[in-house]
Design a protein around this nucleic acid. Sequence first.
DNA 1: CTGAAAGCGCTTACAG
DNA 2: CTGAAAGCGCTTACAG
Lengths: 358, 358
Amino acid sequence: MDHLTRVSYNCGMPRRATSQDVADLAGVSRSAVSLVLNGHGAGNIAPDKQALIIEAARQLRYTPNAIALSLRSRRSSTIGVVTDAIATTAFGGQLLQGAADLAVAEGYLLLVIDTQKDLEREGHAYETLQNRQVDGFLFAAMSLRPYDAPPALRSAPAALANCYDREDSVAAFIPDEVAGSRAVTQHLIEQGHRDIVMLTGTSDVVASGLRERGFAAAMASAGLPATAPITTGWEIDKGYAGAMHVLTATQPRPTAIVCANDRVAIGVVLAAGQLGLSVPGDLSVVGYDDDENVAPCLVPALTTVRLPHREMGERAMRLVLAEVLVDTPPVLTVAPTRVPRTMLGCPLVVRDSVAPPR
Amino acid sequence: MDHLTRVSYNCGMPRRATSQDVADLAGVSRSAVSLVLNGHGAGNIAPDKQALIIEAARQLRYTPNAIALSLRSRRSSTIGVVTDAIATTAFGGQLLQGAADLAVAEGYLLLVIDTQKDLEREGHAYETLQNRQVDGFLFAAMSLRPYDAPPALRSAPAALANCYDREDSVAAFIPDEVAGSRAVTQHLIEQGHRDIVMLTGTSDVVASGLRERGFAAAMASAGLPATAPITTGWEIDKGYAGAMHVLTATQPRPTAIVCANDRVAIGVVLAAGQLGLSVPGDLSVVGYDDDENVAPCLVPALTTVRLPHREMGERAMRLVLAEVLVDTPPVLTVAPTRVPRTMLGCPLVVRDSVAPPR
DNA sequence: CTGAAAGCGCTTACAG
DNA sequence: CTGAAAGCGCTTACAG
């Protein structure tokens, strides 16, 4: 190719300045530049030269090349994040955002790889990330579940978000689903409800069982008969069908429905409307998730339980960064410290979809 | 610190092998290792030594250090992605996923920075990314809008997704909102509807105006009177209120409603149900977005228009990668090539919420 | 107080 | 056919 006709993108714009450029302009050595720009000038470099260097750096808009920095320090100021499926839900974004905000504040950037739940891709992801010399790892699951942490996670600062290692070999941050579910149910009971039905999600999801447990616990401790949850699913239409069934076939008709999540609650409200039942007048409805696109804007606004997505991302990242920053990884010669799973609260969010039964 | 009591994470596990380690084990020089492992062995290195090297690399599980590679090649195999707000919507995830999949397939990783619409953070983001020597840039907006592309985007391979530069100095990939809106409206007209009302989003969002235009165009070309869109907003409750108003106050009552998006459609269906109106029997409803959590599971399943989020991410990334890979950036000495905005189709997705008027 | 040297891990001309 | 050298951009001991 005729290189005369080809002009690189940097044409016109001078190439990025290096510390050598700054040194040349200031008339000093690279060492001096490095020292001054890193705050080690005092007592080492003459004040006038310091000023010269600072001015030269400013003029050249010099910022150190992060890649070179990484090679030298053998740390990349990057945290590798592996997720099993983030595209599907806005919650994944919240978790990631929590993690990213914290990281950025400390000068770290995230290298995120979504494996689409493909185990082969997952193994490849950790390898790729290790090649890039990430300083730590975060694995985030989009739906609460157990996770078999690979060796990579044990050989570097790492944490799990919304999942947990069966052997607790990696610190995990998960939502306290049982307590959350128990809390909404209790809320319903406190409002005077006794005939409460739970529409639960599919059993392949760990959260289903936990929420059922919370529901049962609340009912039991109030001395109410534990009605068996009805497995419906996670979508609007599932909630609609479940509610249609429950509201027309159950005697006595329940005065409150605990939904698998907020979307299911939409279906329930839809069904109630078509049956001429007002919410919360004739029927109280509660959700789970506090989906920002649903709960605050449903009609009526939905009382629900907030899943601590952002917090899980933040807490997990905080731990990883702490280990990375202190540069004092746990002593592995001693018996491996069994880091416990940290349960994060799922706060009850009271809105307008619950009222005392008539 | 007493280094005897402190054990690094790498304890037990040998530190990552370098090409030197491979060379030592194979009894050759680093050059030979590099040559062979990069496929330049043939004709340069004796076959037996090649085998030795390959075996040594395998044994040591050697993979080249990406940081060192970057420093040498001055390319990082990383694309910098700046977004203005990704956490809020699942669509952002789809766009990003489309971009990431393509990048990963080419051996590139994404460094994503979300600016939360903060201009200061945005400037900082580009600088950070440049320091990290990203090979190209992608800017993605969560809501279609004009975007004043900063110099960074013009000095490197770059593309815009879901936004466009007013001066078209950077290639942009945006959805054809007008055509999409026109298509659903036409669909309604073809089904026999004449009294169609549009519930439109807020005017601060560019898409509102475009969708209104598509609606008006379809009505006009069918010779129907253009009813003025009713500004409602983007949420369930807004749709509910809008529909309640339209369905009770308008004479004659419209037989079809075009919604600002799928969530507004939920509100409309909710209102219809409470008014004893069946959808689509008494009222046809269409949405926009093809929100996977809403459209396919609403009752009835919602006819809507799909926004090409994944495609925007893919197309934009494809362009960036093409420029990066070919290493032949557009010639800037010639008049700057005005790269056009590429409009991506918004396909009509027919489901069950539309029927001929009674 | 300051500059020259070494080295992080890699690859590519360049001698031999 | 093979190894020694240079260099990507940086910082930190180390001489002077």
